[in-house]
Design a protein around this nucleic acid. Structure first.
Lengths: 337, 337
DNA sequence: TTGTACGCGTTATCAT
DNA sequence: ATGATAACGCGTACAA
């Protein structure tokens, strides 16, 4: 009693059960069409042979994979949250999820899109893409695509995003409203659209209060904890020491706070810190971080659902903007004296 | 000048270029076989028609997908780290990665394995599976599988793991060596093999010093920050208050420290805390956490490489145990007085 | 209710 | 160096 040398096919099952392959196929996809006795015979044969339909052949025939691809710049906890949303939604509608990261490399992004055009997956979710329009334009016929988190300047592509400008503005205005007059900025990665938007939000907040932007108070970061640490070092060494700082994401804010502690400075007494993202770590830090929360999970979830609608040929809303919310915690307070 | 209604196939390219489909196929897979002029004609046609080979048809013919599936209990930063390793290795050898999570649900695990048997992917990496042997046994013919992080009691399946018992023992012995006499334990999720191993490590550490395990000092957690918070509450309320606690992972240790701070207790002065995992957050916490680091990324990377070897039909080592390392930081010290 | 036969888009074998 | 053609495993007209 040994198993067959190579895996059973629909043909083998048909022979074993003494029916045609069409009957076996029907037993799989539409059992109600079959006579009960026939169905039983077929099921028994399937069981006996350990038969599993070949997904590849099925995909070819149906010309769909029921797979979607999601592309993120990097595999960080932040993008994981988006991914969780995508995966949950995909699972719900019977899709599998293929993940790839680009390291902000345009070539890699193009490569992934090309794979989808090759029918490796039925659709694509592009999170925080550098320049989606260019990418898509470089592929003559684009597959179903949804942009997530960042819609870029793209008019054509459907997207599920937040208003990064408004979010950053809220985080900065909170500091201004507390009475801070010198508010520093730690910027996100150069070349990132999100970083540019959040910088703009910072500038608008100042502008709305009739303040001008002081270039010495704006220092470059790259969204990493380490860059936040270094940026704060710069700020502390600089000619004008701010009493508050807005960091373009939680991780840099955490880094900034680490530097402050290392210098024996107290938060928020000596310096207030606010940011955007509202990742889990923001609530866990000491002190807990004042931040503008971004519904990353929801963004992923809705991006997937939008992609699903597109693949189903349904009409969709071009751009969905989700709400953000300022969460005031312990890292911000009025300036001392 | 409008593009073709449906995407071009190899046949269309052949007609357009005035050659046979075999020639087009060769232009794709082995261009050196072709006369330069012919190749140029074909390439031009491909370019003109925006042709992309259909991956599904190719997969069917070659009967492989060049996809692997990786299954994790949950999509947490910890498993993300393993996944990063898998993805990097997979990318290097030309494979794509399909992700799924089980929520520790055996049915879902079986379902994923079944999908791989259906040739949705060529192989499978199972991270921290509850009971891999049973799962595999329930599928008559198992696909290529590698276990990651936790090898369970499995003898048959290849795995890339760490020694969870030894890791927990090291973290606990560190506390004992500092002179703590009452060391608490915060356990991982019930039913988890890793949790069981780490508990055993704690017990062995005590045993090695001739101590007995005090049940009052052992409280149940589930690997989450929240469970760590609650566990520490229990410990503080209990009949014997420990001067040190070993938590079965970083997140619970973080939770425990939060509770301590909330009660105005100082770390490590009033209570030392150690754990296992060495996630990024352990270095970022305040105080930084003493922990036994687990090379999660490497585990993922090597699991993928092992899977690759198996799929290539190469002989492989059945079990690879990677090294862990005690990292002493600010959360542990000698007991006060 | 069941069977026959074709096609999905490739790759590979065998000719020429 | 190139072409004709048979698989790969499945779903589905169309027939019976």
């Amino acid at each position: 009693m040994r198993s067959s040398p190579r895996s059973a096919t629909i043909k083998g099952v048909a022979e074993y059960a003494g029916v045609s392959i069409a009957t076996v196929s029907r037993a799989l996809t539409n059992p109600s069409l079959l006579h009960a006795d026939t169905l039983a015979k077929v099921d028994a044969a399937i069981e006996q042979l350990g038969y599993r339909p070949n997904q590849i052949a099925r995909d070819l025939r149906r010309s769909e994979t029921r797979l979607v691809m999601v592309i993120v710049p990097r595999l960080s906890p932040y993008f994981l949250e988006i991914f969780r949303g995508v995966e949950t939604a995909a699972d719900k509608v019977g899709y599998g999820v293929l993940v790839g990261h680009t390291d902000r490399d345009r070539k890699r992004e193009t490569e992934f899109i090309s794979q989808v055009r090759s029918r490796r997956a039925d659709g694509l979710i592009l999170a925080a893409s550098t320049d989606p329009d260019a990418i898509v334009a470089s592929n003559s016929q684009a597959p179903p695509i949804v942009l997530a988190i960042d819609g870029g300047a793209s008019k054509g592509l459907p997207s599920v995003v937040i208003d990064h400008v408004a979010a950053a503005q809220a985080a900065t205005e909170h500091l201004l409203d507390l009475g801070h007059r010198h508010v520093g900025l730690i910027m996100g990665a150069a070349g990132s659209g999100i970083a540019a938007d959040r910088r703009l939000g910072y500038e608008r907040a100042l502008g709305a209060k009739g303040r001008t932007v002081d270039p010495v108070l704006c220092v470059q970061g790259d969204f990493s904890v380490e860059s936040g640490e270094q940026a704060m070092e710069m700020l502390l060494k600089g000619p004008t020491r701010p009493t508050a700082v807005f960091a373009a994401n939680d991780e840099m804010a955490i880094g900034a706070m680490r530097t402050l502690k290392r210098h024996g400075l107290r938060i928020p007494d000596d310096m207030s810190v606010s940011s955007v993202d509202g990742q889990r770590i923001a609530a866990l830090s000491d002190p807990p971080l004042t931040t503008v929360s971004v519904p990353a999970y929801d963004i992923g979830y809705r991006a997937m659902m939008t992609l699903y609608d597109i693949m189903q040929g349904q009409p969709i809303t071009q751009r969905k903007v989700l709400k953000t919310e300022l969460i005031v915690r312990g890292s911000t307070a009025k300036p001392k004296r």
